[in-house]
Computed example of a mutant assay.
Amino acid sequence: MAITFPRPMLPYGLNVQSFELDRIDYLSPTVGAGIGAVSAGSPLWSASWSLAGMRENEMEEWRAWLTSLRGPQRSFFGGDQRRRVPRAYRTTGLPSGFNGDATAWSLNNDRDVLTISLPNGFALLTGDYVGFRWGTHGRTKVRLLEARVGTAAVAVEPPLPTLVPGNAIAYVKDPVCVMKLTPDTDFGSIGVDGQMAGRIVAIQDLRS
């Protein structure tokens, strides 16, 4: 079977992770001693995952997965492995009959306050994610800065990029973004117990 890209991540072997926004910001002091600031480009999701405790077959699957990406040349779908569903549903799963897709969504003019239509009473907590998908490969996500129940609008970061079309689907199950490996990725050390360890480091590839 042909491999297509972006590839999904494998569902095992991941241990410690970091999933945060990477910003390029510059301070702009003023004559009156105030401090202004400006960002260079859109914030991007930056992530790292450690790999440990895998059996040989699992190690070889991860080795093949990483090799197929050809370093930073090819992309994959990366996400926060601790928030594959909203935090309130981590143990129970999503409500019966709900696949995670919103029926509608809208933004304020600054694109950093989100209103989203989900099942009645559905809870989103601080730190949860809403993903957006469009076309074949378009994927990005935002993080909630406050809790929400019902139809209340909530602040999110980063502001949703303007490249996301208005007909994109907002969703809360397995939200991901398109990412590429960085040279900090290191995989292949094998312990005396035969277990392989390594680290995957990636940055978002934000494109339509």
Rank of each mutant, 00 (worst) to 15 (best):
D184K: 12
M59Y: 02
V154E: 01
I200P: 00
D184S: 08
R82S: 10
S50H: 05
L125K: 13
D25S: 07
P165E: 12
S68W: 01
G36V: 11
A2Y: 00
N109A: 15
R55Y: 02
P159Y: 08
G53Y: 07
G198E: 06
R63V: 09
L21R: 05
K173P: 00
G32P: 00
P161S: 08
L145F: 04
D22F: 06
A197R: 15
E146C: 06
V31K: 13
I203S: 05
K141E: 00
T30C: 04
W49H: 10
L206N: 01
G121V: 12
V156R: 08
N109H: 04
A40S: 03
Y89T: 06
W65Q: 05
P11M: 14
S46M: 14
W62S: 12
E20S: 12
R111M: 06
S42D: 02
V113S: 13
I35F: 02
T126N: 12
Q204I: 04
S106D: 03
D101I: 14
G194L: 12
T162V: 15
N99R: 11
A2T: 05
E60T: 13
V113W: 04
P8K: 15
Q17A: 09
S50T: 14
G79D: 01
R133W: 01
T92E: 01
V164T: 09
T67W: 00
K173G: 06
G127H: 12
A152C: 06
F122M: 11
I116K: 10
F19E: 01
P165D: 05
W105V: 09
G166E: 04
Y89A: 08
F76W: 05
T91S: 13
S106A: 15
N15I: 06
R63N: 10
S28T: 08
V178W: 02
T140P: 00
G127C: 13
R83L: 11
V85R: 09
I200Q: 04
L118C: 07
G93E: 07
V164Y: 06
P29T: 09
R83F: 05
L125Y: 05
R74N: 06
I3P: 00
G78A: 14
N99D: 11
T67K: 09
L118W: 02
D101T: 07
F132P: 00
A88K: 13
A33I: 03
R63S: 13
T140K: 09
P161K: 10
L10H: 07
L44K: 10
T136V: 09
L124M: 15
S208R: 12
I169T: 15
T92F: 05
D22E: 07
T67Y: 01
G71R: 08
Q81A: 09
A33K: 11
E61K: 15
I169H: 07
L125V: 09
D112C: 09
L163V: 13
N57S: 11
G93K: 14
D174Y: 11
T185Q: 08
D25F: 01
L124W: 03
R83T: 01
A64K: 15
T30N: 04
L114T: 05
W49M: 14
D110C: 05
R74E: 04
